[in-house]
Design a protein around this nucleic acid. Structure first.
Lengths: 254, 254
DNA sequence: CGTCTTTTTGACCATTTTCAATCAGTGTGG
DNA sequence: CCACACTGATTGAAAATGGTCAAAAAGACG
């Protein structure tokens, strides 16, 4: 279990906010020059996280807020017997560490799934954001509400859907987020999870997750191999999982 | 399924913010006079909701933000087959309808469990709050983060705990919130749920929930009868459920 | 090529669900 | 005050979904 300090590389601003790659994606909203200036002042540097690295730890305070510039990570909690529940995955543009800025410690941990680049925002400047940039403060509320929505949806999955529906739903929902993030096309997306990750997110055992995936493959709904997920029959998968994508366009980020 | 318009009683401000009963509870933070003035300007009236009434509907836009002045309600989502997942319960001081102010529609519904009084805040004035009262804007972020924390905790319960632990955990966590809200004392609290509500929150069937409750009663951990829940052995229940209360004191509200 | 992680399968087991009644509590109208 | 209707609580039995265990196969990597 490597800690941030041990394995992370903190860098100065390699990617200037003025040239933020997220702004080119149609999913994200545009900034005004004033906003860009503030965010640029707010951002203190970048963090390169390597696969398996713990970015934020449950129970520990957090000094920073992060925005994902690239890569995948996931939020999770551990039970005392070692069981892990993955709460949500985090992709391009997602905000991490908000709990740390509002409470004295994080209620969950965050681990990098792939090599990731995160923008670092020191909390000392967060208050200035609220004071001087109500529009950005509102964006933070927006992002928090969106996170709530995703967890709500996840909770109904784990609580009320069958194993097959759960798997189907999570795959569809991640695929849909990948499309939004511009890293998926033609029904195909990079998909750097292991079956263990899926199982831990869905409240299932790996063994059963594996069997469900086999069935979905046999039914020619999906094809998942060596880090790539193919949605072979999106309509079928949507029907099965009752997934309906209402992800808002023009989403904010910081 | 009564709608808000049909059964609700919208009243002018019966309880002036200056004399808000929440401010007397040690769990809640104090307001500055400026803040009280603004909240008072923000609040447009009160809503009396009766048991079973739908306060907010999934998929519908919401015109208002609500704060609970008294009573119980719960957030839930329905599956197409009619199954219901209760996402969280809402008590004194909790904020309802934030999603409606950020997205064009609610991602979940809210139903009153008991007769409830809610403060009504029209969304048109929300932007003023962000502009003129960054401290209150921060409070909204705080409340959103707290909601996330509770759902996270709920999700790990549903995903990874046994039925017995789940029931024990939910009971402890609701009891703990009641203590905070000042409506519980001496291990005893009003508890206006049915076993169906518990089951729907925990992702269990009513039948099994009933059997688990019986076992908890037989082990003399709890005693629940006619709307009153007694925690007969708090230590035992905490141990069983792995519940640890870290609810922050001095919580904000609007 | 050898080691380590991840995936896959089969067999067996357990928790939880579903089904089907019955019972208890509450409110209503006569 | 009692019969009737409803909703919610309880129970037992049978069925099922998903879990655990164990082991082998397949990849990934130095």
């Amino acid at each position: 279990m490597r800690s941030v300090d041990a394995a992370a590389q903190v860098q100065p601003k390699v990617t200037p906010c003025q040239a933020c790659p997220l702004r080119n994606l149609k999913a994200f909203r545009q900034f005004t020059p004033t906003e860009v200036d503030f965010v640029s002042y707010f951002k203190s540097g970048e963090l390169i996280a390597h696969p398996g690295m713990t970015i934020l730890s449950e129970g520990a305070p957090s000094e920073h807020l992060y925005t994902i510039l690239s890569g995948w990570s996931f939020r999770y909690k551990l039970l005392s017997d070692g069981d892990r529940q993955i709460l949500n995955f985090a992709l391009l543009g997602d905000l991490l560490g908000l709990q740390g800025s509002v409470f004295d410690s994080m209620g969950h941990s965050v681990e990098a799934l792939t090599r990731s680049t995160l923008c670092i925002f020191p909390l000392q400047k967060l208050w200035t954001l609220y004071e001087k940039h109500p529009d950005l403060a509102f964006d933070i509320t927006w992002l928090a509400s969106r996170e709530e929505r995703i967890i709500d949806e996840h909770l109904i999955s784990v609580g009320r859907r069958s194993a097959t529906q759960r798997v189907a739903f999570l795959l569809m929902s991640l695929y849909s987020r990948c499309v939004q993030a511009g890293i998926a096309e033609g029904g195909q997306t990079v998909f750097p999870l292991t079956q263990q990750h899926l199982a831990d997110a869905l409240g299932l055992s790996v063994v059963h997750t594996n069997k469900v995936l086999r069935r979905l493959t046999d039914r020619e709904l999906i094809f998942w191999r060596s880090g790539t997920l193919q949605i072979r029959n999106e309509t079928g998968l949507r029907e099965l999982s009752l997934f309906s994508n209402e992800e808002p366009r023009n989403r904010p980020f910081i």
